[in-house]
C-alpha cells in the first residue's frame, strides 16, 4: 500500500501562537485515516494546508510524491466542519456550480448529481431552494457535492454532525464503499466510536504537536494495560485466594447461580497463562478475554497523559468490552 499523501514537518504560526509544530503524517492509499485531537489542537489548520487554502510556514505536502499544487485541487474533496450552502440557490443548480469549480463539465456534473440523488432518494429536491431543506437534508447535499468529482483523497471534517443515526449510518456505509472503490479518506472527528469502526490509521494532534500515530490495531495493543475479563463458576473467596500475587483484582460482579465476572490486571512479568494456572484448580473458567482500551480511552490518555488513563481504565466498573 503506497502513501497517497504525505505532510512533512509542517509548521504554521499565526501572530501570537503556533498552530502546528513540526507535524508529519503519512496517509496510505485506499484507507481511512483518522485525524484526531481536541478542539483547537490544529487539525483544521492542517486540513486547510492540505487543501491549499492556506500555506505552511515550514514543511511540505506531497501528493503521490509530488509537491502539492493547483492541479491537485480536482483530486481532493473537502467537507469542512464549518459548512453551508447558498440559502437562496436551488439545490441542483448549486451542486452543478460547486462541481464545475472542481473541474467537471456541466453535463457530466448533471449526470453524476442525478445518479447520486437517485441513490440517496432525493430526486424531488432538484428545484428546491436550500433554505427549504432540513439540516440533515442539507448535509446530504453537501456530502454529495464533496464526493461528486470522484476525488482520490476525501477530507471529511466531522461528517456525521447534523445527521440522525439512520442517515449517519448511510454516510458511514458510503464512506466504506468509497474506500473499497479505491478512495483515500481523511476523517476528522470527535466521535471515537466511528473512529474505531472505520479508521485503519490515526494521527492524534494535541497542542499543535502530533502525539500519536499508526495503525489503529497497533495503537490499541500499545495502549493495552494487561487487563483481562474473566468469567467463572465457583466461590468468589476461592478465586481471590487462588489468585496469585502476580495479579490484582480490579473489579468484580456477581452474575447469579454461582457465576462471577471479574476484571484482573497482571502485575510484574506475569503472563495470562500464569494467572489461569493459578485459578483453574479453584474455579471453573468460562471465558477469558483481554480488555483492549477504546479509542476514547486512548484519546483521553494521549491528551491527559498515559498514567491518568491506566488509572481510569483499572477502576472502571462497567464492562464495555
Amino acid at each position: 500500500m503506497g502513501i497517497l499523501l504525505s505532510a512533512q514537518h509542517i509548521t504554521k504560526r499565526f501572530s501570537g501562537h503556533v498552530a502546528l509544530d513540526d507535524v508529519s503524517i503519512d496517509v496510505p492509499e485506499s484507507s481511512i485515516f483518522g485525524l484526531l485531537g481536541p478542539n483547537g489542537a490544529g487539525k483544521t489548520t492542517l486540513i486547510r494546508i492540505i487543501n491549499q487554502i492556506t500555506g505552511p510556514d515550514e514543511g511540505k505536502v506531497l501528493f503521490e510524491d509530488r509537491l502539492l499544487d493547483n492541479s491537485h485541487v480536482q483530486q481532493i474533496g473537502y467537507l469542512p466542519e464549518e459548512r453551508g450552502l447558498y440559502r437562496k440557490m436551488e439545490v441542483g443548480e448549486q451542486a452543478i456550480y460547486l462541481a464545475r469549480l472542481k473541474g467537471l463539465s456541466k453535463k457530466e456534473a448533471r449526470r453524476r448529481i442525478e445518479e447520486w440523488f437517485e441513490r440517496f432518494e432525493m430526486q424531488g429536491w432538484w428545484k428546491k431552494k436550500v433554505e427549504e431543506l432540513s439540516k440533515g437534508m442539507q448535509q446530504k447535499v453537501q456530502f454529495i457535492v464533496t464526493v461528486l468529482h470522484e476525488p482520490r483523497l476525501l477530507i471529511l471534517d466531522e461528517p456525521f454532525s447534523g445527521f440522525d443515526p439512520i442517515n449517519a449510518q448511510i454516510i458511514k456505509d458510503e464512506i466504506v464503499r468509497l474506500k473499497n472503490n479505491g478512495s483515500t479518506i481523511i476523517l476528522s472527528t470527535h466521535n471515537m466510536g466511528s473512529v474505531e469502526e472505520l479508521c485503519d490509521h490515526i494521527a492524534l494532534i494535541n497542542r499543535s504537536k502530533k502525539v500519536l500515530d499508526g495503525p489503529v490495531k497497533d495503537i490499541r495493543r500499545q495502549y493495552a494495560s494487561r487487563t483481562y475479563d474473566l468469567s467463572f463458576k465457583g466461590n468468589m473467596m476461592g478465586f481471590t485466594n487462588a489468585m496469585w500475587t502476580g495479579a490484582e483484582l480490579v473489579d468484580k460482579h456477581e452474575e447469579g447461580d454461582g457465576f462471577h465476572k471479574v476484571r484482573v490486571r497482571l502485575l510484574g512479568n506475569a503472563t495470562p497463562n500464569n494467572l489461569l494456572t493459578a485459578v483453574l484448580p479453584a474455579v471453573e473458567v468460562h471465558a477469558f478475554t483481554e480488555v483492549l482500551p477504546t479509542m476514547n480511552d486512548i484519546f483521553i490518555a494521549a491528551v491527559q497523559g498515559r498514567e491518568a488513563t491506566a488509572e481510569r481504565l483499572g477502576t472502571r466498573s462497567n464492562y464495555t468490552e
Partner: peptide
C-alpha cells in the same frame, strides 16, 4: 458576508484561490 455566514466559503476556497 453572505458566503461567510452561510459557511459555503470554505468549500469554495478548497476549489479556487480566495
Amino acid at each position: 458576508v453572505e458566503e461567510k455566514t452561510t459557511r459555503i466559503v470554505e468549500v469554495i476556497v478548497s476549489s479556487v484561490k480566495p
